[in-house]
């Protein structure tokens, strides 16, 4: 990628991530939530990949880490739902609800948002990396190979 893109991404990738975390954390009192924030979190890593190549992005968040976070997010969400059964209902909001429009309120909803944000962010990045990992090579005799890339080449436009 060009110099302009690299510089802008260098400045903004961190802020994108931070904004994503903010959207997740304030999901229960402002517009947004786990999914929207997760997309921003995933997007910040995708920006890094586009501007600096896979190697740098994978150093920040490896493939195995992203798929682990993906499953972990889903399991935390399911766990929160299952704990509710002890109180009588699946997905019961068992934590104190607190005052409306405060950060620490709404019971389990912020926790659910964090789990969803984790899952969405990690899995979006994992999907993007999975799409970028395989290079299709067409040989002259008509056969095609699907090679898994390991080098640090940038993604070509």
């Amino acid at each position: 990628m060009g110099e302009i893109v690299r510089n802008i991404v260098r400045i903004f990738a961190g802020f994108t991530l931070l904004f994503g975390v903010y959207i997740v954390a304030y999901g229960h009192i402002t517009p947004g939530g786990g999914f929207a924030g997760g997309v921003l979190i995933g997007g910040s890593f995708i920006l890094l990949t586009l501007a600096y190549g896979k190697k740098l992005a994978l150093q920040k968040l490896s493939r195995s880490m992203s798929s682990t976070l993906d499953s972990l997010g889903a399991l935390i969400f399911l766990f929160l739902a299952l704990v509710g059964i002890a109180g009588g209902y699946f997905f019961l909001n068992f934590l104190p609800l607190g005052k409306p429009f405060h950060l620490f309120s709404a019971g389990i909803i912020p926790l659910c948002n964090i789990a969803i944000g984790m899952k969405v962010g990690a899995s979006l990045f994992a999907v993007f990396i999975a799409l970028a990992m395989v290079r299709v090579v067409k040989h002259e005799d008509g056969t095609t190979d699907y090679l898994e890339e390991t080098d640090d080449t940038e993604i070509k436009q």
């Binding site: 798929s67 682990t68 499953s71 889903a74 399911l78 739902a81 299952l82 059964i85 699946f90």
Partner: peptide, 22 residues
């Protein structure tokens, strides 16, 4: 309580397999 487990049990087992026994 069996009703939500029809959905919860396979989801949970699926993600446990992916997390720990990939």
């Amino acid at each position: 309580v069996l009703l939500p487990l029809f959905i919860g049990a396979p989801l949970g087992c699926g993600f446990v397999i992916y997390l720990a026994f990939r």
